[in-house]
Design a protein around this nucleic acid. Sequence first.
DNA 1: CTGAAAGCGCTTACAG
DNA 2: CTGAAAGCGCTTACAG
Lengths: 316, 316
Amino acid sequence: MSRATVSRVVNERPSVQPEIAERVRAVIVELGYNPSRVAQSLSLGKTQTVGVVVPDLGNPTFQSILHGVNQAAATAGYRVLVADSEESADEERALVEDVRRRTDAVILCSPRMRPSDLDAVLPQIKPVVVVNRDQPAHATRVVVDYAGGISAMCRHLISLGHRRILHLDGPVGSNAQAARALGLATVAFEHPEVSIQRVPCGSTIDAGYAAYEAARGSGATAVIGFNDLVALGLLGHAREEGWRVPEDVSIAGFDDIPFARFATPALTTMRVAFESVGEAAWNALQSQLRGAVDADLRSFTPVVVDRDSTGPVRAG
Amino acid sequence: MSRATVSRVVNERPSVQPEIAERVRAVIVELGYNPSRVAQSLSLGKTQTVGVVVPDLGNPTFQSILHGVNQAAATAGYRVLVADSEESADEERALVEDVRRRTDAVILCSPRMRPSDLDAVLPQIKPVVVVNRDQPAHATRVVVDYAGGISAMCRHLISLGHRRILHLDGPVGSNAQAARALGLATVAFEHPEVSIQRVPCGSTIDAGYAAYEAARGSGATAVIGFNDLVALGLLGHAREEGWRVPEDVSIAGFDDIPFARFATPALTTMRVAFESVGEAAWNALQSQLRGAVDADLRSFTPVVVDRDSTGPVRAG
DNA sequence: CTGAAAGCGCTTACAG
DNA sequence: CTGAAAGCGCTTACAG
C-alpha cells in the first residue's frame, strides 16, 4: 500500500487489484483523506483553473460574462478565479500576470490598459482571450457589435413601415455613441428612402423625459433611445401628454434592463446575451488549451427584443 | 546565484548583497522569469485564495456578495475562486469540498444542502463562514434580518404619522413571507395603537396592479408591497385611478431594485447592502485564518431607502 | 551573506 | 499488479 498505489486508486487507474483498491478506499474514508489539489497541480503542471479579470465586478455586464464563463468552464471540469482591477489601468497588468500564475489561462474582459501594455502582456500570459476590446487584431477575441445592433433595430422598425426614425443620442464622445452613429449611418446608406435623424439627448431617464418636445416635433414615427432609461423617460412624458405608444409613436430602448419588460407598454429594446459572450470566451480559450494556435474573432450582435412599445406605423 | 538566493530576492529578504540582488533582478527580467504560485502554495502550505460558493451566480444577490468578498479579500492580498452549485443541493457538498481543496478557506452562501450534510461538511472544510442560513448555530455565520427590516419600515411609516398600514403579502409558504409576517407581528405588538393588516398578493408587478382595489378599500394610509415590483404595480394602478402618491397614500417596496429610484414618484424601499454582507463574511473568515476559533454571528438589517413615494400622513 | 539539502504532497515512468 | 525513486518548482532551516 505505497503512496503510488493510493494515487492510483484515487485516480481510478484500472491497474489495481480490486481487493486492495477496496481496502485503500476504506482507509481513505476512515482517515478522511483529501488529496491536495495544489500538489496535484504542481505535479501535473496544470491547475484546471482559469482566471477571469474584469474592470468592475459590480457591473452587471461583467457579472453576466463571469456567469457565462463559469457555467461553461464548470462543464469542462474547470474552476474560475475572479479578479477585479477596479478600473485601474495601472494595476491591471500586474493583476493579470498574478492571476495567470495561479491558473492555466485567462479571460481578459474589457482591459483598460494602454494598447502598448496590452501588446506586451498578451504573449506573456497566453493562453488568453480578450473580451470586448478592438485592440490587438492578432489576439483571440470575442466582441459585441453595437453598430450592427442598432442597424438591426432600424431594420426592424423599417420592416414595420416606419420611414422617419429618430435616435436620441447618448453622451458625445462615448464609445457607445460612436458605434450608434456608425450603425445609423449604415442603415441610412442602405435605405435612402428612410429619414434617420439624430438629436442630442443623454443617457438618463431625465434626459429622455426632456427629449419629449424634440421627439414629438421631429415628425418621426419611431424613436430609439440611447438606452432603456432614456426610452423610459420619453415613454413617461409621452403618456402624460397623451402621445400614444405605440399607436402614435413607436419607442425603443437599448440594453434590456430588467425593468424594461415591466414598463407600460412593455419596452422594445436590444439585448446582448453576455452569458453567451462569456461562454464563447470559454470556448475560444478551450480550443487554445487543446492546442489550437489561430487567433480568431467571435462577434455578438445585440438582438431585438420586440415588445409592446413598438408597432406598425399607422396609416396617416 | 543558487535558487535559494533567487527565492530570497524575489521575496525581498534583506539578507542579500545589493549588487548580487541587482544582478538577479536583471536576469529575472531578461528571462521573463515568473515564479510559480502553485509551487509557492505547496511549499508555504497556503494558497492565499478563498473560495466562494453560491447556488446561482446569475442572481444579483450573490453577485453582490461575491463583489463584496472579492473587494475585501483583494485588499488583504487574497484571490477569490468562485463556484456555482446551480441550485443543486446534491452536488453542493462535493463542490464545496473540491473548492476547499484548492483554497485556504471557503465562504458558503445560502447553502441548499440538508442540515445533516451541512453539519457533516462544515468541520471538514473549515475555516468556513456560512452566509444567509439559519442552520448550524455553532458555525460562524452572517445573516440578513428580514424580519427586522420590515419592522424598521413600519416604524418609519409610524413616525410619519401612519396608523393604518397594509402589507401586500408575498407567496405563501416562502421563507421571505414568513420573515415578513414575523416582523409585522413584532411591530403590531409594540404599537397597539397601529392597525397592521395583511392581504394576500404575490410577488409580481401584475399582482401589485391587481391589489389596487383591496389596497384602496382597506382604509390604509400606507401600503408596503412584498417587493418593489408589487409596489410599482400598485403605483401604476394608483396613478391611473387618481389615487395620489404620497398625498393620498404612501407606498413602499422592498429590495431596492435598480429601477426603484427612477419610478414616478421615486419608490421608497428597503435595501440590503449585500456587498457589506460579503465584506463581513470575509472579515469573519479572516479572523478565523488568523486563528480565532469562536463561532460568531453577524446580522444585517435592511435599511429604509426613503424616497418620494412615502410621506407624512395627511390630516384627514 | 550564500548554498546544499530537505521538504511541501502529489504523479508516473521504470523496474520488478 | 505494485513499489522505490525521481520530479514538479518553490521555501527555509541549517551549515559554512
